[in-house]
């Protein structure tokens, strides 16, 4: 027999797992470029790392991780865009799984853009 506490535990555990189905447009969106160029440059581990970090930090109800095709800057792939409601889009380039973890920790959770990884800091002047 389940107790109320056990029920609450199941609810907490499961909430994150179904949260992506209640997408209401008000959440932060992390978009990974998954065109052929992105995949070739290693976007899959980046995507996996993002999904895992978001779930580990229990951010599923406010953050969705999704994919898009090629956005045209293939030499900077893997590209990750972060769109927070009401804020300007931040574009991260040449991402890796480790960098993705930092973006989730510092930007998504901490609210501070990881400037070193952004396109502005990486494009040759």
């Amino acid at each position: 027999m389940k107790t109320l506490a056990e029920l609450a535990e199941i609810r907490e555990k499961m909430k994150g797992k179904v949260a992506m189905r209640q997408n209401d447009g008000n959440e932060t969106r992390i978009i990974v470029g998954m065109g052929t160029c992105g995949i070739a440059a290693g976007a899959r581990p980046v995507l996996a790392a993002l999904v895992e970090e978001v779930s580990k930090e229990k951010l599923e109800e406010t953050v969705t991780v999704t994919q898009t095709g090629c956005i045209g800057i293939c030499q900077y792939e893997p590209v990750v865009e972060v769109i927070e409601p009401g804020k300007e889009k931040v574009t991260y380039v040449k991402m890796t799984a480790e960098k993705a973890q930092r973006v989730v920790a510092e930007h998504i959770k901490g609210g501070k853009v990881v400037t070193a990884f952004t396109i502005g800091a990486n494009v040759a002047k």
């Binding site: 029920l7 199941i10 499961m14 909430k15 179904v18 189905r21 209640q22």
Partner: peptide
């Protein structure tokens, strides 16, 4: 069209059986 009706945990995730808990306790 949101949950899998054959998985009770998904119903619980949508606050399922919370009302029953509240009523009974």
């Amino acid at each position: 069209g949101v949950i899998n009706p054959e998985v009770i945990d998904e119903y619980i995730a949508m606050d399922g059986y919370k009302a029953l808990g509240k009523v009974l306790t």
